[in-house]
Design a protein around this nucleic acid. Sequence first.
DNA 1: CTGAAAGCGCTTACAG
DNA 2: CTGAAAGCGCTTACAG
Lengths: 352, 352
Amino acid sequence: MPEQKISIRDMAERLGVSPTTVSFVLNGKQKEKRISDKVAKRIIAMAKKLKYEPNHMARGLRTGKTKTIGLIVEDISNHFFAHIAKVVEHRALMYGYRVLYCSTEDNIKKARELLQMLKYRQVDGFIITPTASLEKEISALLGEKRPVVLIDRFLPGLPVSYVIADNFTGSYQAVTHLIKQGYRKIGFVTTTSSQTQMKSRFDGYRQPLGDRGIPYNEDLVLRIPFGSARSNAPRIIMEMIEKHRPEALFFATNYLGICGIEGIKKLGMQMPDDIALASFDEHDLFRLHDPGITCISQPIDRIARKVVDILVTEMESETGEVTQLMLPPKLVIRGSSTRPVGETSTALQQNA
Amino acid sequence: MPEQKISIRDMAERLGVSPTTVSFVLNGKQKEKRISDKVAKRIIAMAKKLKYEPNHMARGLRTGKTKTIGLIVEDISNHFFAHIAKVVEHRALMYGYRVLYCSTEDNIKKARELLQMLKYRQVDGFIITPTASLEKEISALLGEKRPVVLIDRFLPGLPVSYVIADNFTGSYQAVTHLIKQGYRKIGFVTTTSSQTQMKSRFDGYRQPLGDRGIPYNEDLVLRIPFGSARSNAPRIIMEMIEKHRPEALFFATNYLGICGIEGIKKLGMQMPDDIALASFDEHDLFRLHDPGITCISQPIDRIARKVVDILVTEMESETGEVTQLMLPPKLVIRGSSTRPVGETSTALQQNA
DNA sequence: CTGAAAGCGCTTACAG
DNA sequence: CTGAAAGCGCTTACAG
């Protein structure tokens, strides 16, 4: 097991050629630089024999490229982002890129620091779940011609690539489904964020109410700050349910849905008899809860793959193209929202 | 917004001092190198004004240090590892280290490639969830004096640091609890892995049976390969239940437990009346399922923090110390395993 | 067809 | 108290 310390110069000396020639051959520029087949073959054989590995730092210093992508998510321990990360990593590897992950925890200050750190580490490109108020920093990246693709949400007005789910349609489908099941007093539990994904989910909640003549009631909309979610959210949701007695609740994210289930459980209520429920995002809990939780499943794999494809294209071609992609989510209907006795509509059962 | 291209040389020229002096001051060697306060102050002021950021690659090339930790987990999308990753990232940052993650998917070949890649990227230290048969590669790392800490499992006989949960005791507690509840025909669903964590969990299953005079029955032990888990596991579990009719099942990991719930559900069986259930690891599904799923909760935060502490100590002191740490898990008793009418024992309700 | 040389930005022995 | 110089390992314009 050789200490991996073979440099280009070492090999050049052993072979009696110049480091230049070795570098050319190893970088596949044999033809372009018209290196003789004989020399090239000897170089390649030697590199293989010595298990030559280029020094990443040296190459990076020289070329300014690190073959690394920075991935900023909101929370790596969230089911949605953990899966995104996994697929991004896998896809990036196919292109020869590594991924440096980090989580903002929806904290603007932390997001700024991470951006700074990734710049300093000279990642070649960025995949960013932006927090609010990150326009200036993203603009700066664009100004420096650094490839950026946003994910999950975007920053209106900024000419930057993104891949998102069609959040409006997702919500719209879920709420329409609830209405068709006969529910009219439908509540919406969301975050305090006014970013695009949440705005669209809200619009997709409100619109079908209007379309079907159901009055919008602000009392039924609950906004819970990101930070307090884990600790207080179930309690806050319980209070809202007790105070306003919604017939159905639609949750804007999986963790809110999870907190909702917890709250409903603590109240001793049954789904869907006492209250119906639907949530954005898929989750093992939604799939296996009894009853199953109706949800809007985002095409996680496609989102993640596309975001890498777009970023890699941008990193390697530097055309400055802006690609904005919106992928359709899927309504998965389960027991939590289907009226017991088929009262109003057909109750499809779609299990994943 | 200045293009962050200020180098030490730039600053040296502007200040009329040498790059050496600037470097010394910026690296906190003012005292050691006896740089005058006046010069030092000017350098620091200039660095601040110009928002100087050292070039990471250049520094890495020169020093051989990257201030990066490589973290190899089994599967970043698994609840346990996702949380580990989050805490490791956070803790590492406190020490000024970034984390490069990757998943082995329990594939030896992929593990080897990742190790190779991280070496090539010159990470300063490794946190590794080893797959089976990785002894040679880990030994090689140790031979090259690269700091390594294993997590979740270890490789017997290798003098390498690790942080793990006390898997034996965890299983032992869970199975003892089931026995105390009056269950005797207790099945165990595990992976085909014979690595330490699985071996200990198995031993912790078998031992209390013997202690209480319950015969060990090989038919009640089901071993499911990692890869097939997601697709076939629920079906395999269903078949075993139908064939051998265990009164209770203990699952060796959270994803197996999830598959078990799915299988039991498809069979239309009720917990704990038709079958009792407990699982290693915590999960939202276990917490909020109705009934709640009894589980062995690992001290994820402590494991992750400790593993970083140990690694950083090793990276910065290079003493070659080997620290092997085993942390106690916690039995969380829920409805899935508590005999309905307190038949045999007291049924504690511990909710998280 | 091949090589000598410069330089990426830093750190650090060495000299004074 | 400070600086000139070498060198980490690579890539690439330039020269022949």
